[in-house]
Amino acid sequence: MVALALAELVVVLHYAALVFLVVGGFLARRWRWLVYPHVAMAAWGLSVVVFALDCPLTMLENELRVLGGEPPLTRGFIDTYIDGVLYPESLATPVQVLVAVLVLGSWLSLVASRRSAAPSENAVGRSPS
């Protein structure tokens, strides 16, 4: 019973990680320190997609499900809980592209906000030469 509750907690954490992947770059505009974990999350997400890696959260969920007497997932987290549930499976590739565009857009927005916030040389007390 405890193992199954922990497996459900892992599912919630997995959803939270995916939400952070999508919006973390925008959150980094407010909390600059978030850019580093967001870059790491984006790199991991890209690796999972490109190299078809097993996600450690999915592996942990499966182990907890088995400990609780349930069968492991037959497919990955996204294939089980997202594709065909939140959107049709036929839209998986466009959704991946949309997520990539949102992540890259958030980073471009972050760079643009940093540049606009940078003081000009004249603003820091230097006189023009």
Rank of each mutant, 00 (worst) to 15 (best):
Met1Glu: 13
Leu4Asn: 07
Ala5Arg: 14
Ala5Gly: 06
Ala5Val: 10
Leu6Val: 09
Glu8Gly: 13
Glu8Phe: 13
Glu8Met: 10
Val10Phe: 15
Val10Lys: 04
Val10Gly: 12
Val11Tyr: 02
Val12Ile: 12
Leu13Lys: 01
Leu13Gly: 10
Leu13Ala: 07
His14Arg: 10
Tyr15Gly: 06
Tyr15Trp: 13
Ala16Phe: 09
Leu18His: 13
Leu18Glu: 07
Leu21Gly: 13
Leu21Ser: 11
Val22Asp: 03
Val22Phe: 10
Val23Ser: 06
Gly24Glu: 03
Gly24Gln: 03
Gly25Val: 05
Gly25Asn: 08
Phe26Pro: 02
Leu27Asn: 06
Ala28Gln: 02
Arg30Lys: 14
Trp33Ala: 12
Trp33Ile: 14
Val35Arg: 07
Val35Phe: 13
Pro37Met: 11
Pro37Glu: 10
His38Pro: 08
Val39Ala: 10
Ala40Gly: 12
Ala40Thr: 11
Met41Asn: 06
Ala42Trp: 09
Ala43Thr: 06
Trp44Tyr: 14
Trp44Lys: 02
Trp44Phe: 11
Gly45Tyr: 04
Val49Phe: 07
Phe51Glu: 07
Phe51Met: 00
Ala52Thr: 05
Leu53His: 00
Pro56Val: 00
Leu57Ser: 01
Leu57His: 00
Leu57Ala: 04
Leu57Tyr: 01
Thr58Leu: 00
Met59Gln: 01
Met59Ile: 07
Leu60Met: 00
Glu61Tyr: 00
Asn62Lys: 00
Glu63His: 04
Glu63Pro: 02
Glu63Arg: 00
Leu64Asp: 00
Leu64Phe: 04
Arg65Asp: 01
Arg65Tyr: 04
Val66Ala: 04
Gly68Pro: 03
Gly69Asn: 07
Glu70Gly: 03
Pro71Met: 08
Pro72Asn: 10
Pro72Ser: 08
Leu73Thr: 05
Arg75Ala: 13
Arg75Leu: 10
Arg75Asn: 12
Gly76Pro: 15
Phe77Ser: 02
Phe77Val: 05
Tyr81Pro: 06
Gly84His: 15
Val85Ile: 15
Val85Glu: 10
Leu86Tyr: 15
Tyr87Met: 15
Pro88Val: 15
Glu89Val: 15
Ser90His: 15
Leu91Arg: 14
Ala92Trp: 14
Ala92Met: 13
Pro94Ser: 09
Gln96Lys: 12
Gln96Val: 14
Leu98Gln: 09
Val99Asn: 11
Ala100Asp: 14
Ala100Arg: 08
Val101Thr: 07
Val101Ile: 12
Leu102Gln: 02
Val103His: 03
Val103Gln: 04
Leu104Gln: 08
Leu104Ser: 06
Gly105Ala: 06
Gly105Met: 06
Ser106Lys: 03
Ser106Val: 01
Ser106Met: 03
Ser106Ile: 05
Ser106Ala: 07
Trp107Ser: 01
Trp107Tyr: 08
Leu108Asn: 03
Leu108Phe: 07
Leu108Ile: 09
Ser109Thr: 08
Leu110Gln: 03
Ser113Arg: 09
Ser116Cys: 05
Ser116Val: 10
Ala117Cys: 00
Ala118Val: 09
Ser120Phe: 08
Ser120Pro: 04
Ser120Asn: 03
Val124Asp: 00
Gly125Phe: 08
Ser127Cys: 05
Pro128Glu: 13
Ser129Phe: 11
